[in-house]
Every structure is written in structure tokens, then in C-alpha cells.
């Protein structure tokens, strides 16, 4: 499982950073930064999915 992040759609709600800080960092302006661009380790999959399910702008998607 991988995560795709759309910087243009992101409005800086920071929900992903709060729910899955191992997968998402946040820059100085509050926009998300994807920390893991490759395969998400299995122990973080649940957290990554949680981030996807809580993004108000649908800026994050799961790619299998």
C-alpha cells in the first residue's frame, strides 16, 4: 500500500498530521508533507488509512 498526496487540494487542515505523524509531517505554513513516499510499512497502514478517511479535502488517497 502506498499513499498519494495532492498538494494542490490540501488546504492545511492538518488532520493527517494529527492522526498519522509517522506518515505525514507538516511544513512551516501548515501544509502536509508526505514522509513515506514508497510502500507504507504494514504497522502504519491503519494510521495512514485513518488520515485518508479524515481529510476534508480528499487530498490523500490510498494506492494499492
Amino acid at each position: 500500500m502506498r499513499i498519494e498526496y495532492d498538494r494542490d487540494a490540501c488546504q492545511g487542515h492538518n488532520r493527517c498530521y494529527l492522526l498519522a505523524p509517522e506518515v505525514f509531517d507538516v511544513d512551516d505554513e501548515g501544509y502536509a508533507v508526505l514522509r513515506i513516499t514508497g510502500e507504507i510499512p504494514s504497522e502504519l497502514e491503519e494510521k495512514a488509512k485513518l488520515a485518508v478517511d479524515n481529510c476534508p479535502e480528499y487530498a490523500i488517497t490510498v494506492v494499492q
Binding site: 488546504q11 492545511g12 487542515h13 485513518l50 478517511d53 479524515n54 481529510c55 476534508p56 479535502e57 480528499y58
Partner: peptide, 20 residues
């Protein structure tokens, strides 16, 4: 609630700047 894409801070480019 596990799936909660709420819009309390707005949607689009005017997302509440003070949301954090």
C-alpha cells in the same frame, strides 16, 4: 468516529487560518 471529514473550519481556500 473514525471517518470524520467535517467542515467545521470551512472548505476550500478559506480554511480557518486559526484552526490549529
Amino acid at each position: 468516529r473514525q471517518k470524520n471529514r467535517h467542515a467545521a473550519f470551512g472548505l476550500g481556500i478559506h480554511r480557518c487560518v486559526g484552526s490549529n
